[in-house]
């Protein structure tokens, strides 16, 4: 699919997903969209992610294939690069922590450009890293803030997070920075895809769809908090019912809530089958999680079949007489 068709396809898909609960709730299917769909989605999420990880773990990684960006450990008088060319588990763990928490390999992103001449020049490109950091961390904060709907009493850590997130104290309910940052992050990641021609060329519906879906989730959440408010006590009764396996569907929650819940359910269900599963995959990337110790440890390919060998000694035993007859040198005379 070309770029514009991919975008339209994804937009229409998200549009349909918004309309489904809208129609369903108007037809009185509140327990379907409020209870059955979320349970199915969460079950699919866990089963799907675990199955994915197990499937990955079943493929052998016989050789060390870490990407190395620094001096390998060799002689004592050559300074090795512990982080960028780790040779032991300690280095790998440190490298993984920086990768997972700070997106270190995105920070290394570079861009090639032509300038007068034409000459080629490489420059560092940090915008993707910044956009990714803003997007992922604001999403994490938003997710953790939602714990207030799933525990009673609400943990003081959640209150602390809310206090920091809403420290601007703008309006009531207090404006949360993370909600706006999440929308801005998704918008940036989308605009990046459509404004850079090379990136637009390789973008597929599976790139646009999650962006639109997450944008719709964040947008419905923000709308629900600041503009078209829903009865939050009823919402918490529903979510607590879900969390404690005693589902209840209180009357009179606005349909915006059901749209939000349905889109979140779709995100959970879609997660294991899409690029989003990089959440688990980042831990299993062999270019990051292996120590570069090929010259210290012998790694044997597990699917090597036993090779039938015929050694020189056996060969000589077989042909010794003929070799001596022909005047060829032999190692053993008898």
């Amino acid at each position: 699919m070309n770029a514009s068709r991919s975008i339209i396809f994804s937009l229409v898909a998200v549009g349909i997903l918004v309309c489904l609960p809208l129609i369903g709730v108007a037809a009185g299917m509140t327990s379907f969209f409020g209870v059955i769909v979320p349970y199915l989605a969460v079950a699919l999420f866990f089963i799907g992610v675990v199955a994915r990880v197990v499937r990955w773990a079943r493929s052998p990684v016989p050789f060390r294939i870490p990407t190395t960006c620094g001096q390998q450990k060799s002689f004592n008088w050559i300074k090795p690069d512990k982080l960028d060319n780790p040779w032991d588990n300690k280095g790998v763990v440190l490298r993984m922590i920086l990768e997972v928490l700070l997106f270190r390999s995105l920070f290394r992103n570079s861009r090639m450009e032509f300038y007068e001449g034409p000459k080629i020049r490489y420059a560092s490109a940090k915008w993707l890293w910044l956009g990714a950091i803003v997007f992922h961390y604001s999403f994490l904060v938003v997710l953790l803030r939602h714990l207030r709907f799933f525990s009673e009493p609400v943990s003081s850590l959640v209150h602390l997070l809310e206090g920091v997130d809403g420290f601007l104290e703008v309006g009531a309910p207090r404006l949360y920075i993370s909600g706006l940052a999440l929308l801005a992050g998704v918008a940036f990641l989308f605009l990046r895809r459509v404004t850079i021609p090379q990136l637009k060329y390789i973008s597929l519906p599976s790139d646009y769809f999650p962006l639109f879906l997450i944008f719709a989730i964040a947008a419905t959440g923000v709308l629900m908090r600041y503009i078209y408010k829903v009865d939050i006590v009823s919402v918490k009764e529903l979510t607590m019912g879900l969390a404690t396996f005693h589902p209840v569907v209180p009357e009179g929650i606005g349909s915006l809530f059901y749209i939000h819940l349905f889109l979140v359910s779709v995100l959970f269900a879609y997660f294991p089958f899409s690029k989003l599963v990089h959440m688990a995959g980042v831990f299993l990337s062999p270019t990051r999680n292996l120590p570069n110790n090929s010259r210290m440890v012998r790694h044997i390919n597990p699917w090597n079949y036993p090779v039938k060998v015929h050694t020189y000694e056996e060969y000589e035993d077989e042909f010794r007489e003929k070799m001596i007859e022909a005047g060829l040198p032999v190692e053993k005379k008898e």
Partner: peptide, 14 residues
Amino acid sequence: TFPLWSNLGKAAPA
């Protein structure tokens, strides 16, 4: 699954 096990299956009354 923190939300599922932290409440021990009991929802506080509304």
